[in-house]
Each structure stands twice: as structure tokens, then as C-alpha cells.
Design a protein around this nucleic acid. Structure first.
Length: 659
RNA sequence: GCCGGCAUAGCUCAGCUGGUAGAGCACCUGAUUUGUAAUCAGGGGGUCACGGGUUCGAGUCCUGUUGCCGGCACCA
């Protein structure tokens, strides 16, 4: 007999060889019908796979996260089966579950087209209707390899050969006349797969994620427990697309991009740059009170400088190189660069220049920690396929700073930084911040004791700021561990923004030193850190986060004074605007010959936070009719009161706190 | 950089199997002076991304280039 413990703590007895399906049936017929798989002693297993002995069993249905994952995994298998049925010249490779769905990588000479999707989806539905039992089979490694080779699936054979240790068994899952290598578990039959799936897009992907390998064809799909969930998901995607910073950037006249004129560089328009200025001003205030000193360093530096820092050797291919010579003056004469022309490079980062500032003059231990900040404009020659809106560009401005300190100051400085970052992100409305701690790689500089201190110091800093943190073992730079702070855009793409990196190497390479209390020369440790990361990327994420409706303190135009008619009301509108501007607000007046309906609509679409409507009545009584973005009502308020309350609303969060 | 898709007015798009371009919005002008999400009328505006080819004739077909989009690779 087998003793089974259920999630509610109750116990039941079953005959030897019983499966989770038997358990489900003993509870209720409807549960057995809804059952997709089971958690047996915590491990996700096939419904019909017999229990090995006494166990705790929880039945998994499509209401569980596990169930949804199974559905997506099965959808991938059904997709592969459908594709091979329709296109026999296709080889299968891998097909994992991802957020909201799945993909499958196929190898086939002829490119698939999204036009094929309808046909493939129809075939997938056929496979569901056929309700093939999905059967688990255990194979010997070599036999499985031989079998996959026999049917021409070279990729599968290679996967087994590489991943499975010799002698170990593997599992195959068979549905109808089709089977795939898979760890499982799976649904009991294809008929259990809800038809709430949809193929989304085609993309290229390298075999094993290595650009030296051939490229496969990746088919992305989404799958859900019900038609309703699928619809909701597609609706969410549509909504998210409307928040795309590239779309809103054009609609709100914030910036434009021109791939011909300047690929990967942003043309900021007055509205967009107003947001930039507000963010920069805010950051300056935060840095000023946090003990940073702002500097400005050269855009172009001699290649010798980059050679010393080590960037020339390793990162040259991503740097913009400028020969230092005077070209021939005549128009039409082809420019030839003299062979002996010195080379200069646009800075891809600010660190070496900051070390130069540190090195100039003498530094004492009394000067440490020295925190040098710069809104540093950097250029990186990014691969063309990497450029994305204003999130990944070739010219960008980092809110960069380097903290030069003694080793025993690292933890304290890291804590201060994490607290500052957390507070800044909260001011911008970000509650959820993903933090990644990348730890020592196999090949590294420095002894283990130093790494121990550095890693635990960073962890302590994250904890002190109250942030959750995920470890990325072995992902650190060779010179030190690093923290990455990530934010997510409208459609769920993750972007690195803030960072904190420990560096013992660059001060050494560039010969930075300070005089210690005993008179000896010592090396400072360098902390590279950025909070926003890049102004461009951060503003891009803000646009998507707020869907263009910026909080008042960031809004390019905070108030539009809209006159109902252009007579006395028009003059009063000018007067109101002047008063509001005196109170420090960014104001525009709309005295155009248009209806008030038209003006309200236009400024609402432009996402102006406050529309102050003034007509004859308001002019007469020296009042304003305030309409706030997102509300239909209006608030009639005296001009004097409005001046105070709007100025208060427009205060940046740090100044609000200090008030 | 790689795979696939796309490129028509400032924007969003239409333009059938080849017969030298069209709508809405925006813009300009006029009328209207308006009470909380589009007042009416008129007008101007396009080397159909760029280069080559096929054809009597190319926005449409072929080809090369560039750029953009979706992924992959990269992201100090």
C-alpha cells in the first residue's frame, strides 16, 4: 500500500502502482478531468506516472502557475509536431517555455513566413482534436541518439550527446506518430491542451546562442488556459504598444531619430529636453547633498590614453576613432588621412578621464572618499542590430560618478550609494527594482579574501537599502563584483539602468595614488557607479512607465491657460500665465480662434497635467477653472489660491521633502 | 554583425493582376468668438528611401545599397 498525503494534510491509502490520476479520481471526477499533472513530493510529474512509494501529492490544474507552464510546454511540442507534419524538410531543436508563451527553434533551408501561421495553427488544433495520449518513455542514451539520427534529427542527437552523461537514461515523450526528447512532465494527452494559443512572430536565433553557429528559425507563440486569458493578453500587448517610447516620443514631440543623418543618436526637441533638464537638475541636487563634486572631462582623448587604460586593446572595435589632422581645404578633393596622423577617440566611458582628475595635484587620505560626478556624454559604436529607439543608442549621457576610496570605506560607500539609488528610483515612481549581484568569475584578479569582502560588502549595501537581490555567479568583471539595477519597459523587456562596480585594476593601470597617514603612497579603490544609467534610456523607460503622462514636476508643459474667447478672457489668460510663470511654472497660453472643446481635447491628448480654462466669468471674478489630466471635473478656484497650490503640485519630490 | 519583414504627403495609411499618385488628420487662408475631448469652407503639399535593370511604359516586377521594425549575438 501507498500512503498519500494531500495538500490539506489529509491522508489516503492507495494500491501499489497507483498514479496521481488515481489520487485525483478518488477526490472527485471533476478534479480528475481538470488534472494536468501533479506535484509529487514537490516534484512536478506526469499524471499517469505511478508513484514510487509514500508521497505528498498535489494535483495541478490550469489554475496553477505550474499548470500554465505545462500548457505552454505542450503547446511547443504540438507546434513542433504540426510543423514537421506540414513541412517534412524541417528539423526540430529546442522549444522552451518563456514569459507568456513559448518558442521553438527549427532548422530548415526555406524561411518560414508569418503567412504560414494560419496553416500551422490549424494543424495544431487538429492535433489537439485527435487527443493523442502523451506517453513517457525511458531510453538508453546511445539508443536514443541512434534513433534520432535514424530519423534525420541531427540537432536532437547532438543535444543528447552533449547534455546527458554517458550511461544515463533519458526520457522521450510520444504523441501519435511524433516524439521529442524531453525531461517532461507533460499533459496526459494533446486533447488537454486548451486551444487558447497563437503564433506571434518569426525570428532568427543562433544554434545554442552562439553567433559562430548557423542560424535557426525561431517561432514564437503565446498560450493560455482559456480563450479569455488569451484575449486579455493580446489586449495588454496592444495597450503596451501604445506606450512605446518611440511612438509617444513623436506624438508628444519629445525627440526624433534619423537613421540616415545620425544613426543611434537622439535629436531632442524642446519638450523632450525640458524633461531631460528637470531630471538633470533633480540629480544635481541629490548629488550635491550626497557629497559628490561635479566635473567635466574631454570628449576626445588621445589613443595613448586609451592604450594605458586598457580599453584600446579590448574595446577599440566599439570606439569612434578620429584622426588628428587638418584635411585639404578644397571642395571635391578627396580626403586622405596621413599615415603618421595621431589617433584620438571619442570617449566610450568617463572612467579614465576621472582618474586623470584624481591624479592631478596631490591626494591625501584626508580627501577620501572623493566622489567625482559627471553627466558624461559617451559614444559607443554599437552593432547596428542592437540600436533600439532611445534605449540603446550610440551617443548617450551617463549620470556617471567614480568614488575613490580606501578599501575599508567600500562597504560604507556602497551602502550610501544603494540608499541614494533606492530613494531616487522611488522619487521617479519605481517601486519594483530588480537587482543583480554578479560575483567572481573563474578568471579573476585579486585574492579570495578580497573578493569575499567585496561581495559581502555589496550584498550588505543592497540589504541596507531594503532591496531584494539575485545572484549571478561568475558574471562579475575580472577586476571586481558588480551590482546591476534593472527596470522594465512597457512590453516587459528588461534594461540595465543603475550599476555599482568595484575596481582595483584601473587605479593601478593609470597610476592613481594618495598619501596615507603614515606618509606612504597607496592605491585608492575605485567605485564606478551610475543611478539612472543613461539619460536617454532612463527617459525612454519613464515615457513608457507613465505612458507619456508625466507627473507635474517632469511635464514639459505643466499648465495650459486656454481662453474661451479671444477678448477680455484672452487678455486675462495672458495675465494668468504671467503670474503662473512668476510662481515658477512652465506655462503656455492658448488664445487661438478655436472652440474650448477643441482646445481641451488637444491639450489632453498632449498630456498636459493641468488645463486652466478662462472665460468672461473667470476674468470678471479673477478665478480659474482647473481641469486635471485624467479627470472630467473642473475646479473653480481663485487665481491667488491656484498660484500657491499649482506651484506646490509642481515641486520636485526632493524639494517637497525639504519644504 | 546574423535571420526575417518593411520603406508612398509632417503623421496614420489606401493604391487590384505594371498604364507616370489618393484619403483622414496636421499645415495655410477665410468665415465663425466659441463654457470643458474634433465649428465650417477653401487651399498648398509627394524624385513613391536611394542606385541599377526588365519593359513602349515601374510606386507596382528583378537586383544592389541604406535605414527602420521583430528577434538572435553583442552591451566595457
Amino acid at each position: 500500500m501507498i500512503n498519500v498525503t494531500l495538500p490539506d494534510g489529509s491522508k489516503r491509502e492507495f494500491a501499489d502502482g497507483a498514479s496521481p490520476l488515481d489520487v485525483a479520481e478518488s477526490i472527485s471526477k471533476s478534479l480528475a478531468k481538470k488534472a494536468l499533472a501533479a506535484r509529487v513530493n514537490g516534484e512536478l510529474r506526469d499524471l499517469k506516472r505511478p508513484l514510487d512509494g509514500d508521497a505528498t501529492v498535489a494535483i495541478v490544474t490550469d489554475k496553477d502557475a505550474d499548470g500554465l507552464e505545462l500548457i505552454r510546454h505542450d503547446a511547443a511540442h504540438v507546434l513542433a509536431q504540426a510543423v514537421q507534419a506540414l513541412y517534412p524538410d524541417t528539423q526540430v531543436t529546442i522549444g522552451p517555455v518563456i514569459d507568456d508563451g513559448f518558442y521553438y527553434d527549427f532548422a530548415r533551408k526555406v524561411p518560414f513566413s508569418t503567412d504560414d501561421f494560419e496553416k500551422i495553427e490549424a494543424k495544431m488544433r487538429e492535433i489537439v482534436d485527435a487527443d493523442y495520449p502523451i506517453v513517457r518513455e525511458v531510453w538508453e542514451k546511445d539508443a536514443a541518439i541512434a534513433e534520432f539520427k535514424r530519423i534525420g534529427e541531427d540537432y536532437k542527437a547532438q543535444i543528447i550527446d552533449d547534455i546527458i552523461p554517458p550511461g544515463e537514461a533519458i526520457t522521450l515523450y510520444r504523441q501519435g506518430d511524433w516524439f521529442d526528447l524531453c525531461r517532461g512532465p507533460h499533459l496526459p494527452s494533446t486533447g488537454k491542451l486548451p486551444k487558447a494559443f497563437k503564433l506571434m512572430k518569426m525570428a532568427g536565433a543562433y544554434w545554442r546562442g552562439d553567433s559562430k553557429n548557423e542560424m535557426l528559425q525561431r517561432m514564437y507563440g503565446t498560450a493560455w488556459a482559456s480563450e479569455k486569458d488569451l484575449k486579455e493578453h493580446l489586449h495588454r500587448l496592444e495597450e503596451a504598444e501604445k506606450r512605446d517610447h518611440r511612438k509617444l516620443g513623436a506624438q508628444l514631440d519629445l525627440f526624433h531619430l534619423d537613421g540616415m543623418a545620425a544613426a543611434g543618436s537622439v535629436f531632442w526637441h524642446p519638450n523632450g529636453f525640458q524633461i531631460w533638464r528637470q531630471i538633470e537638475a533633480y540629480m544635481r541636487r541629490r548629488l550635491d547633498v550626497s557629497g559628490y563634486q561635479e566635473i567635466k572631462t574631454p570628449q576626445l582623448m588621445d589613443s595613448a590614453q586609451w592604450e594605458k587604460s586598457g580599453h584600446w586593446g579590448k574595446y577599440r572595435e566599439n570606439m569612434f576613432i578620429v584622426p588628428d589632422f587638418i584635411p585639404e581645404g578644397d571642395e571635391g578633393v578627396e580626403i586622405s588621412v596621413p599615415e603618421d596622423a595621431k589617433l584620438m577617440a571619442l570617449k566610450p566611458m568617463n572612467c579614465p578621464a576621472h582618474v586623470e582628475v584624481f591624479k592631478s595635484g596631490q591626494k591625501s587620505y584626508r580627501d577620501l572618499p572623493l566622489r567625482l560626478a559627471e553627466f558624461g556624454c559617451c559614444h559607443r559604436n554599437e552593432p547596428h542590430g542592437a540600436i533600439h529607439g532611445i534605449m540603446r543608442v550610440r551617443q548617450f549621457t551617463q549620470d556617471d560618478a567614480h568614488i575613490f576610496c580606501r578599501e575599508d570605506q567600500i562597504v560604507e560607500e556602497s551602502i550610501r550609494f544603494c540608499r541614494l539609488l533606492e530613494s531616487v528610483y522611488r522619487d521617479f515612481g519605481f517601486e519594483k527594482i530588480a537587482v543583480k549581484l554578479s560575483t567572481r568569475p573563474d578568471v579573476r584578479a585579486g585574492d579570495d579574501a578580497t573578493w569575499d569582502r567585496a561581495e559581502s560588502g555589496l550584498k550588505a549595501a543592497v540589504d541596507a537599502a531594503g532591496l531584494p537581490c539575485e545572484f549571478l555567479p561568475g558574471e562579475g568583471a575580472f577586476y571586481g563584483p558588480k551590482l546591476e539595477f534593472q527596470l522594465t519597459d512597457a512590453i516587459g523587456r528588461v534594461w540595465q539602468c543603475g550599476t555599482l562596480q568595484l575596481d582595483y585594476v584601473l587605479p593601478e593601470r593609470l597610476g592613481a595614488e594618495y598619501t596615507a597617514s603614515d606618509g606612504s603612497k597607496q592605491r585608492p579603490v575605485m567605485l564606478h557607479r551610475a543611478i539612472l544609467g543613461s539619460m536617454e534610456r532612463f527617459i525612454g523607460i519613464l515615457i513608457e512607465e507613465f505612458a507619456g503622462a508625466f507627473p507635474m514636476w517632469l511635464a514639459p508643459v505643466q499648465v495650459v491657460v486656454a481662453a474661451i474667447s479671444d477678448d477680455a478672457a484672452g487678455q486675462y489668460a495672458d495675465e494668468v500665465a504671467a503670474e503662473l510663470r512668476k510662481a515658477g511654472l512652465r506655462v503656455e497660453v492658448d488664445r487661438r480662434n478655436e472652440t474650448i472643446n477643441y482646445k481641451v481635447r488637444e491639450h489632453s491628448l498632449a498630456k498636459v497635467p493641468v488645463i486652466a480654462v478662462v472665460g468672461a466669468r473667470e476674468a470678471e471674478e479673477r478665478k480659474l477653472a482647473l481641469r486635471r489630466l485624467g479627470s472630467n471635473g473642473q475646479q473653480i478656484i481663485s487665481l491667488d489660491e491656484a498660484l500657491v497650490s499649482l506651484a506646490d503640485d509642481a515641486l520636485p519630490p526632493d524639494l517637497k521633502r525639504a519644504r
